[in-house]
Write a protein that binds this DNA or RNA. Structure first.
Length: 271
DNA sequence: ACTGGCTCCTGAGGGC
DNA sequence: TGCCCTCAGGAGCCAG
């Protein structure tokens, strides 16, 4: 499921039900995630949830004893708010019952996700400390991207998917942003001119903003915390459209593998 | 410092 | 109906 827009939508959906609420019970049904669910997670019973924020595709949940949950949805994870009486579905790995009578469920068939209990400042955590700028922040500028591209001869698509360069650009939105910038995914990053990098900076921001405003992209299993789908899929210009005509010029959309990931582009609109 | 390849895991879909 | 193969929205880690 999740790219940055999907994580953001999920967070906005669950936030009102969690903030200021006390944790009554934590059930771990399957601890084998990307890294094992922290044994100390159970100790969080009785703590209050102070707030939630996002960094890259990580959700960070701040607890009343100044520890945090570091949550990642991986490739197939979701978080939903439900009534505790709802039967467990296959791959419902965590159930966190709250003082407001609701329950947070973590569901993740492929188990590439993560649900860790950490102490200390999350910003200094190993997985967060080396990350690049948020694509929607003022820190994400053409200058930053130009600097990052200078030494990179890899295809620009794989470079914008590198979280050290900019966070939150996953496989769908990498192809989409390059289409909107008119740049072929195979182009070595270091070869791009300043104006083209500036265009790409704007395209990345716009694609992610638009996806958030349309509720994210539902491909297979992304649903909102209330179970409804996202509508960005119908706005996709190239992703998943190999063999279909470009919506702008009618040229057949091409597909190739770049850095082990499927990549889509229009040979006419993108040079 | 950069690059490409590998890895974790389950499920869906296509071909036969 | 079943079996086998390929592919999937992430991303850390490793060797070269």
């Amino acid at each position: 499921m999740p790219e940055l827009p999907e994580v953001e939508i999920t967070l906005r959906g669950i936030q009102p039900h969690l903030t200021g609420i006390t944790i009554r019970e934590i059930v771990v049904r399957e601890a084998r995630l990307r890294e094992p669910v922290s044994p100390t997670l159970a100790d969080c019973t009785g703590l209050r949830i102070l707030g939630l924020k996002r960094r890259a595709k990580y959700s960070i949940c701040q607890l009343s004893d100044h520890s945090h949950w570091l949550i990642h949805l991986g490739m197939s994870g979701n978080l939903r708010i439900i009534k505790p009486s709802e039967p467990f579905k296959k791959h419902d790995h965590l159930a966190i019952t709250l003082s407001n009578g609701l329950q947070l469920r973590f569901h993740d068939p492929r188990r590439f996700g993560m649900f860790s209990h950490i102490t200390g400042d999350p910003a200094n955590h190993k997985l967060l400390s080396g990350l690049g700028p948020e694509p929607l922040s003022p820190e994400f500028t053409p200058e930053v991207l130009t600097q990052a591209f200078r030494t990179r001869n890899s295809p620009v698509k794989t470079v914008i998917m590198d979280a050290k360069v900019v966070v939150g650009v996953g496989n769908i939105y990498a192809s989409e942003a390059l289409f909107h910038a008119g740049i072929r995914p195979q182009t070595p990053a270091a070869k791009l001119s300043k104006p083209r990098i500036a265009k790409l900076t704007g395209a990345i921001r716009t694609v992610i903003e638009n996806s958030i405003s349309q509720g994210g992209t539902t491909l297979r299993d992304f649903l909102h915390s209330d179970g409804s789908p996202g509508y960005f899929r119908q706005s996709l210009s190239v992703y998943g459209r190999a063999g279909e005509p470009c919506r702008v010029c009618g040229t057949i959309i091409k597909q190739a593998v770049l850095g082990q990931r499927s990549t889509f582009w229009c040979p006419t609109c993108q040079r």
